[in-house]
């Protein structure tokens, strides 16, 4: 929270007025650019409600939202819900990533395994994951296990596909370099295949995490006594739109933060990449 406020406050006057060194401009102006739209909208709405153009009952203004969050935080409720949701996402994400990585790697590396495994996995992928919910509840009960299983299923597929696709598309020419230096199987994996698939793997982790956040809501809708998804349902049943919006805002913050954590954790491993996006794309 403090950080976002800093970044809003810092850049406004001086980056525009003084032609600062471009490094500094890049560090502050980029995030500021991204904040322009949401902050502008929030301010606009706040003013609209403040001036009485709208009563803000169904769409409460940011100040009301903020007050709700503070209130939840003060009672300790907020932490409990966040911890519940985060631990579900982490457990499901962890399981999904491990399974997806293992099966994806096996399918990508061994043609025979791919022929055996891939058709089944693809068929399962065609099932909307939510369709598993009743079965999971029957099998695993209404509590944590079924929720985590659902999230894991959601995370599994993009990771599986990402890993398998990345291995299959490793450049044959680079593999030949490994062969001419007579790398053994494990050395080939460690020195050629792993680094080659890493960029695509990171992307699949991020997609998987996004799906993990999506499915945690679905999981918490199917009956939970705590968690951000519970806050959503509770807010709906008791007619508290501010609580719903507060939960949504926290989802946004948590989702973005966890995604960003993956990004910075893997950035040192991907410095070598020579991609369009690294230069900030077309300006």
């Amino acid at each position: 929270m403090a950080m976002t406020l800093d970044t809003i406050a810092a850049p406004k006057p001086d980056t525009i007025a003084t032609p600062a060194p471009s490094g500094r401009l890049r560090r502050y102006a980029r995030p500021a650019l991204g904040l322009l739209l949401p902050v502008g909208l929030a301010l606009g709405w706040e003013i609209a409600v403040g001036l009485g153009w709208s009563n803000g009952r169904l769409v409460p203004p940011p100040s009301k939202l903020f007050a709700t969050i503070v209130e939840l935080a003060r009672s300790g409720e907020l932490t409990r819900h966040i911890v519940a949701t985060l631990s579900r996402v982490f457990a499901g994400f962890g399981l999904g990533v491990v399974a997806g990585t293992l099966l994806g790697a096996v399918s990508g590396y061994w043609g025979l395994a791919r022929q055996l495994l891939d058709p089944t996995v693809q068929a399962l992928r065609a099932i909307p994951s939510i369709a598993w919910v009743p079965l999971f509840i029957l099998w695993l009960g209404i509590f944590e296990t079924s929720k985590i299983a659902l999230i894991a299923v959601g995370v599994f597929f993009p990771v599986y596909l990402g890993v398998m696709g990345a291995i299959l598309s490793v450049d044959r020419k680079i593999v030949e370099v490994g062969r001419t230096f007579r790398l053994s199987g494990p050395a080939m994996i460690r020195r050629i295949l792993l680094p080659a698939v890493l960029p695509a793997y990171v992307v699949s982790l991020r997609v998987g995490l996004g799906l993990g956040w999506m499915f945690v809501v679905a999981a918490e809708f199917m009956g939970a006594s705590e968690g951000l998804g519970y806050l959503l349902i509770d807010g709906q049943q008791l007619g508290k739109p501010a609580q719903i919006l507060a939960a949504i805002a926290i989802f946004a913050i948590l989702g973005k933060t966890t995604d960003w954590l993956i990004e910075i954790a893997t950035a040192p491993l991907l410095r070598w990449q020579d991609a369009f996006g690294r230069q900030g794309g077309a300006t």
Binding site: K173, I174, E176, V177, T180, F181, R182, A196, W272
Partner: peptide, 28 residues
Amino acid sequence: APHAKIGIIFQEPRLLPWLSVADNIGFG
């Protein structure tokens, strides 16, 4: 099969993009 005493250079450099120049040279 590839032999320790036989090296090959292709039309493209085929450097490993994730290794520095020095690490590429030391690859073998």
